[in-house]
Design a protein around this nucleic acid. Structure first.
Lengths: 356, 356
DNA sequence: ATCTGGCACTCTGCCTTCCGGAGTGCCAGG
DNA sequence: CCTGGCACTCCGGAAGGCAGAGTGCCAGAT
């Protein structure tokens, strides 16, 4: 008994002012669960009725007072129930919640739904819809980024004597194309030669590594052809480097209507944020490289999303993540369930990408 | 005087039960304008104060009673002001409103903003944002459709011995790619030959016309290669025919918050509709081939959008329209302004597309 | 030392009531 | 055919009242 207590004390150094004993944590957990379920401030009596805490409401009240003093819960008005604060959710997520795994039928359904996809666009589209449906929140999926992918093929097409179309195809199925205006006519043989050399050197490499391997390529050509080759290479490098081409797909905005009672105020800034690709990209970008990231309320450094939480995770075809996905919902969300869904979907998209 | 009356009678045969004289129309116009401005039912007294109708409130009341009987306006409750009905807006749009042209500075701004686009995606993205901003409503832009475009280039890339990637590039800058699983190995020479023949026959043609010109192509190849050629052709035709690949871009959903006072109810079905590409495509699809189309409230045969209006128009690089764009807003919208913005934007996108 | 039952207190949410204001329809007179 | 006047209706907000839920605290029980 004494030992247990000591343990908790150690764990809780950061979390609160005073040591949190087992029961208090249980109370917090119960509050979070009930509040998420009912959307209404939860009081001591209701708590002991719905969870068998084995103590009386009065005792729970004492614990609640302590939890409030430590900033984990909060009372909208005197004589109302308690609501978890951001800090309370944080503790809940970190210590009290288990990611809820999907059931076997759910997993089958996910798998089956994603397998029907015909191309990359479709994979992303299906993923985002699925995620929105599973979590009943707003889902965001980033397209597999160019940076992390490898080159599958580079194609050059002569459109006009001095105009070449450059097509870059990645292992994730993404296709980027650019028109190159060349400084002079481009012979078909040169083009074929260049095409062959490009693919020989670049195919299979990760995009950021490509420029290094091609640096000396102009020297392999006749003096006369070097300007053209250099121009094409420049465009290629530019395409490779272009980070801001990162695209994002969104679904489930209709779920915003279930956000809260005080409508326009809550929903407007969120809708605005969702329209800004930049914001979404930054949001996903802040996801940890491995493991799931949960950001809660004020932890998000974008004002419009201060009353939302974001659960995000990387996904990829191999062990390495090539892009991120996640959901955005009210801070009052079902964290275990949401995290379970996000993790499962990420896993399966990864598999699908690896197979194709 | 008598003549004038006869004219109106003729014009109004469809619109109402009784002939509508000039003043009654003026009253309707004033009601629509005021209601759009204030969002509140408008009464007789306020009307005569704000518009110089030259008659007393009592007279206006008589006109209003008539307008109501004919179904152009409607009273939310006894002793409240009047609100235009869908039918009222219809009459307003058809007979009482002039499309409001953009001012010169506005036109310059539009032009300038769109000219900054670097590729097709960017053009569409800029267009939709611009439209949302100008109208302060939800904007929808359809990508230039494959059907109306012409082939710029067809590219074949060998990915594996029996795997070919087919890339189709259209004159509007759109790129479609497909992986073809061939029934047997494909020689590089055959591939080159096929590529050359494909482009020779198809380049410059409108997409729907392409299949006819390529029908006999397999016969130009050795017996042994015909299965491969046929497979590639089949995939190409499939890609050409695939109407449902029509993509759409959306912006301005945050403007939905300005829809009405009774929130969740109004906004939810709209958000749901906006997530359904199919619905949006059908919506745009119903736009007339030439001229602007305005659909008001119940005229839209999709339940979720029954309290919205849609203003849409085709746009294109030449005189022919290659896709549609439009905005979705509350039936209570500024029709002249919205129509002006939609028309102007469509015109400029067309120009931009034609230039590139 | 900790939990518990009891009690007085507070506050919200809802319902009812109650006007003032806006708007109407109708009628009689210009 | 228009207009001023008038009685009527109804919405919307303000004020008051009441039940219910929840709290904090204290004294007694374990």
């Amino acid at each position: 008994m004494a030992n247990e207590r000591r343990d908790e004390r150690l764990i809780d150094t950061r979390a609160g002012v005073r040591p949190l004993d087992e029961r208090r944590l249980a109370v917090l957990r119960a509050i979070v669960q009930d509040y998420v379920g009912t959307e209404e401030p939860v009081g001591s009596k209701a708590l002991v009725e719905r969870h068998n805490l084995g103590v009386s409401p009065a005792t729970v009240r004492n614990d609640m007072a302590a939890l409030e003093e430590d900033g984990f819960i909060h009372q909208p008005h005197t004589s109302a129930g308690r609501i978890p604060t951001d800090k309370g959710y944080r503790l809940f997520v970190d210590r009290l919640a288990e990611v809820k795994p999907m059931t076997a039928p759910e997993r089958r359904a996910i798998r089956h739904f994603l397998e029907g996809a015909v191309d990359l666009d479709d994979v992303v589209a299906r993923t985002v819809r699925l995620l929105a449906q599973l979590t009943r929140q707003v889902a965001v999926v980033q397209y597999p980024s160019l940076t992390r992918s490898t080159v599958r093929h580079i194609e050059l097409v002569a459109l006009a004597p001095a105009k070449v179309m450059l097509v870059l195809i990645t292992n994730t199925g993404r296709v980027e194309q650019r028109i190159v205006d060349c400084p002079g006519t481009v012979g078909e043989t040169v083009l074929a030669d260049l095409r062959a050399k490009l693919n020989a050197n670049a195919a299979g490499r990760r995009l950021p590594d490509v420029p290094a391997t091609l640096e000396d390529l102009p020297n392999a050509f006749e003096q006369a052809d070097r300007p053209v080759v250099s121009t094409v290479l420049a465009t290629l490098f530019e395409t490779l480097a272009e980070q801001n081409e990162e695209r994002i797909m969104l679904a489930g905005t209709a779920n915003l209507t279930r956000f809260g009672h005080d409508f326009p105020l809550t929903i407007q800034p969120v809708l605005e944020a969702l329209e800004e690709q930049v914001v979404l990209l930054r949001l996903l970008g802040e996801t940890a490289e491995s493991g799931m990231t949960v950001r809660i309320g004020r932890e998000i450094d974008y004002e419009g999303l201060n009353s939302t939480s974001v659960v995000s995770v990387g996904y990829g075809s191999g062990d390495q993540s090539v892009a991120k996905l996640g959901v955005i919902g009210p801070t009052r969300m079902d964290y275990p369930g949401t995290m379970g869904a996000v993790r499962a979907v990420a896993r399966y998209v990864g598999q699908i990408l690896a197979e194709s």
